[in-house]
């Protein structure tokens, strides 16, 4: 009888030791306090990383489609030069090295030429570089695809700088009246300058600067006439 007890004790003690061993292993140092804040920040991090992965996958798909296109062209014995030339044309359009035309608006901005009364600040009657800059920015927000001021194409590297009575764009001096041309959805562009609470509306209503906006079905915007010189910027090769 007594041996039977001992066997039972042995079995139960083995089970107990098993649980004990697992617990000892479990409790090994990695038992640290996890606050709700750290959990939520970790969740955010995971979410962001997942979003990034999704974006990268999207990009990969896009590139695959592009690659397939090229392969198809080669299979169909078409010339790859044609495709590349087409692409070059497209690039030139985007970068502003081609004359472009299309529907859009032109905005004529002129100084307020009312007589100055005593106590008026003449500064408020002049069109400043910052006014033009803000107007162009609002046009960009409204989805303008090409913008020019007095025939000067405004690109990403175009400066709009005060030069006393004139303003300088693309190192050209421009004087009033400024004619800002923009190609895009004409209604949206019109609204971007004339809707209440826009900068254009404020110039008109508060400072009495003369702004006229007209919609046109065909606006011609000339290409950028200067030349790009990249002295310092160098391309980053992919995969490095």
């Amino acid at each position: 009888m007594k041996v039977k007890f001992k066997i039972y004790i042995l079995i139960i003690c083995t089970v107990f030791g098993l649980v004990l061993g697992v617990q000892i292993k479990q409790n090994n140092k990695n038992y640290s306090l996890v606050t709700l804040k750290s959990i939520s920040s970790m969740q955010n991090e995971i979410k962001n990383t997942q979003k990034e992965i999704k974006n990268l996958k999207n990009m990969l798909d896009k590139k695959k489609v592009e690659l397939k296109k090229y392969e198809q062209i080669i299979e169909n014995k078409g010339s790859i030069v044609d495709v590349l030339e087409k692409e070059l044309e497209n690039m030139k359009m985007i970068s502003g090295l081609e004359d472009v035309q299309g529907p859009g608006v032109f905005i004529i901005v002129e100084d307020n030429d009312d007589e100055i009364k005593i106590g008026d600040n003449p500064n408020y009657d002049i069109v400043h570089d910052i006014d033009v800059l803000y107007l162009i920015n609002e046009l960009k927000v409204a989805g303008a695809e090409a913008i020019s001021v007095n025939g000067q194409r405004v690109l990403s590297n175009s400066e709009i700088k005060c030069g006393g009575p004139i303003i300088r764009i693309n190192e050209h001096s421009l004087a009033t009246p400024f004619v800002i041309k923009a190609i895009g959805d004409p209604k949206v562009l019109y609204a971007a300058v004339n809707a209440p609470n826009t900068y254009g509306n404020m110039l008109k209503e508060v400072y009495n600067i003369k702004i006229r906006t007209e919609i046109s079905d065909n606006i011609l915007i000339p290409r950028y006439l200067g030349d790009f010189k990249l002295e310092y910027a160098k391309p980053v090769k992919e995969g490095e």
């Binding site: 079995i11 089970v15 030791g17 061993g21």
Partner: peptide, 8 residues
Amino acid sequence: GIAIGIVV
């Protein structure tokens, strides 16, 4: 028994 259990 406990020794065996812990090792396992």
